[in-house]
């Protein structure tokens, strides 16, 4: 039976207590996107600055949420700052794979599992999930998966907007 230690890993609590890249960016040039978790009312705001070479030069996170959603957003911001849009998208699918493969095992649709993403290893293609792997325990608590993926879905939307702007 999963215990709270599986969920609240120290690195997660660290990001929750000291969130990275918290705040706002000026829009424009930054793109601002909001995401909601209708289940619990959590809200995340993602700001991304993308330069002419499609590199994410800056990212900021606003909004409010539980430890899992806040930590996930913080780790995400640290992981993709300085990455290209393409790399960030790889990060997004790697992370969502980490969440959804287990969702599939738990009776979810498993759609991304069918895409062949092997989430049980920390390296997905060229992507190193690093600290983000700590969030793997979330899949043992299915209700919390949406908390963990909220900022990533919002980032995906922000990147679509940023890409269409350039």
């Amino acid at each position: 039976m999963p215990g709270l230690d599986d969920l609240y890993r120290e690195v997660i609590l660290d990001h929750y207590r000291s969130p990275r890249n918290q705040g706002e960016l000026e829009t424009p040039p930054a793109v601002r996107t909001e995401g909601f978790n209708p289940l619990c009312g959590d809200e995340v705001i993602v700001f991304v600055d993308v330069d002419d070479n499609n590199v994410i030069t800056d990212i900021a996170i606003g909004g409010q949420g539980c430890s899992i959603s806040q930590a996930s957003a913080s780790m995400m911001s640290a992981a993709i700052k300085g990455a290209s849009i393409g790399e960030a998208r790889q990060f997004i699918s790697a992370f969502k794979g980490l969440m959804s493969i287990h969702e599939g095992e738990l009776g979810g649709d498993g759609s991304e599992a069918e895409m062949g993403i092997d989430a049980d290893v920390a390296d997905v293609g060229d992507i190193r999930l690093g600290d983000l792997e700590a969030l793997k325990g979330v899949v043992k608590f299915p209700v919390r998966i949406k908390c963990a993926t909220l900022s990533w879905n919002t980032l995906a939307q922000a990147l679509d907007e940023a890409a269409s702007d350039t």
Binding site: L4, C40, C66, I68
Partner: peptide
């Protein structure tokens, strides 16, 4: 956060 309280 209430979500965390409910979990605990």
């Amino acid at each position: 956060h209430p979500h965390d309280i409910a979990q605990v």
